[in-house]
Design a protein around this nucleic acid. Structure first.
Lengths: 336, 336
DNA sequence: TTGTAGGCGTTATCAA
DNA sequence: TTGATAACGCCTACAA
């Protein structure tokens, strides 16, 4: 790497001191316009570029936020990251992206590394609760915001941006009920996620409100959360003669897997079996049977999370934690 | 932010000097095991964590790579980023993610900012050729690798990791021809992308090899590269009675838009009109009619790009540029 | 209006 | 085996 031009080089060129050149380049009021122009000209001529590493060391601010994301390959999280990156840039922050691929060890390593890199704050879609606790205990001083997923009611003690999941589950289920469905298969994520428990709560709430009985056999859980698993377990459910006329899926990917199983068994959607998804990822409106699904505002999730985090970073004294819960809407298409 | 523990604090605790503590913590051979253990114990007790910003200033290495990505929201790029992040982490680098959203101004700004942050290298899926030239001229010293897209033959002067696009276009077209198709609509991206021109070259090559005539009317171009546009322009093409029996799409998203148009007009896939996509993004194998498409190794693209970049970074003297061209394969499913 | 000096936290060099 | 010193590039008191 060729030698980097520093303030000293510019100072030598114009005959001022380092410190004064620094002030000139930052347009401080005490520097008269002509002097400032001269300094800027010299800096440009020499190709001076500020060293933000040095600036960070000095200012104790890196203007960088760490984003610890569970699965960047998943379009749901990619959309959140889009909101994160966009908003962070607007606010003057860069994003260091850490993908954990749902691995707790990688998550812990990311917290350590980003802490050592002295990020100004952290956004996280946590894999497990312990990481968040670790973050609080071993890294006090790093402000952080949890996004999109959590594990239990202790979210009320942390900064959190998420979706009203009970409402989401309720909207989907009630819509199916109103369309005449009585037995609805719910293809859920593991219950260690609060999201999964809350959507199920919404499902139950809708049943209750319409005086329908809850049948535990209609709830199936995917330990590995894959499309493949959704396909397999839906096939299995079909074999069990559970007699359902609709499927509500925890996410659109599960819906896709379930739909494949339905098609394979010769069912038509929605004539024979209706399907509702969750998340509204980009392409599901382009399916042959466009998917009815709970729309979650992914970009906005990322945006609000950054805005909250930046607010926290710039507070002098720590305030009490804040939760931002966004209400989802049902995107009604053709699969019901 | 509470006070960070520094080497000085650990030094005070154990009674050695800063410098010696630094050496002890890095297990330098001159430090005897017991001393080292004592120092480590004290560091742990105090909760010492190295300040990587200071280390970067001192070493002139940030162990950080900037990734300038055209559209993180697009699952194609998200998959590349997955490969990038994974491999970078393995090699000891962090990734600062910059999303340009196909905006040249944002791209230029990203180059500047990342340069000022003193990243050790840059990966870029460029929006326009000028940015790459700018990078070379105004930021010599920053090693960079271009990934997945480029504009003309000058890729042979830069470090590039991409796919053999001519082969991709050829494979798709030849497969259709072998299935008996004679008139194939090609839904292409704008020709300023080398990718678009090369896939078209592959398309033509296949026609030529099978003594089929090239009809310019069968080539349609999407200026804005959206699914919506693919839908609209395919509808338009259908109205023109171009008499095609197959569609080859520049990417799976275009294929989705085209399929929607086909379905809307009552065509069955593949019985009436066959469709081949490009990229093989995750979910297309889960469509009701699983899509036959050119599989591009997205994760590997990111992985190879990082490996090449890291190699360049660690070279003392600049070597001549390198191009890594990966051969795509056809993923044969049900849409042909 | 301009300069001087010190320090942010780390590490390499030289000396003891 | 250990310490002192200087330097990475920047910014800001304080002084002139």
């Amino acid at each position: 790497m060729s030698h980097h031009i520093t303030l000293q080089d510019v100072a030598n060129e114009v005959g001022f001191s380092r410190g004064y050149v620094s002030r000139a380049l930052r347009s401080r009021p005490e520097v008269p316009p002509e002097t400032q122009a001269k300094v800027v000209a010299a800096a440009t001529k020499l190709g001076y570029r500020p060293n933000l590493v040095a600036k960070s060391l000095r200012s104790k601010k890196t203007k960088t936020i760490g984003a610890i994301i569970a699965d960047i390959d998943n379009t749901f999280y990619a959309a959140i990251v889009n909101g994160i990156e966009d908003t962070a840039r607007e606010k003057g922050y860069s994003i260091i992206l850490s993908n954990t691929d749902e691995d707790p060890a990688r998550e812990r390593a990311a917290v350590d590394l980003l802490g050592d890199k002295r990020v100004d704050g952290l956004l996280i879609t946590p894999v497990r609760k312990q990481t968040v606790e670790l973050l609080r205990k071993k890294r006090p001083g790093i402000p952080f915001v949890v996004v999109a997923r959590y594990f239990d009611k202790s979210i009320f003690q942390i900064n959190y941006v998420g979706v009203d999941e009970v409402l989401g589950g309720f909207l989907a289920t009630e819509y199916l009920i109103k369309k005449g469905h009585r037995r609805i298969l719910y293809v859920n994520a593991p219950s260690r996620f609060l999201n999964a428990r809350e959507r199920l709560a919404g499902y139950k709430k809708a049943l209750l409100q319409h005086q329908l009985e809850f049948d535990e056999n209609l709830i199936i859980t995917l330990p590995n959360q894959t499309m493949e698993e959704a396909y397999e377990l839906t096939k299995k459910a079909l074999s069990k003669k559970l007699d359902f006329t609709a499927v509500f899926a925890y996410c659109d990917f599960f819906a896709l897997g379930a739909m494949r199983a339905l098609y394979e068994r010769g069912f038509r959607i929605p004539e024979d079996i209706a399907v509702v998804g969750y998340d509204d990822i980009e392409f599901v409106s382009y399916l042959q049977v466009p998917l009815t699904t709970v729309h979650t505002p992914k970009y906005r999730l990322g945006k609000e999370a950054i805005e909250l985090l930046v607010r926290i970073i710039s507070e002098k004294s720590p305030k009490k934690s804040e939760q931002i819960i966004i209400k989802p809407m049902l995107a009604i298409r053709k699969s019901v």
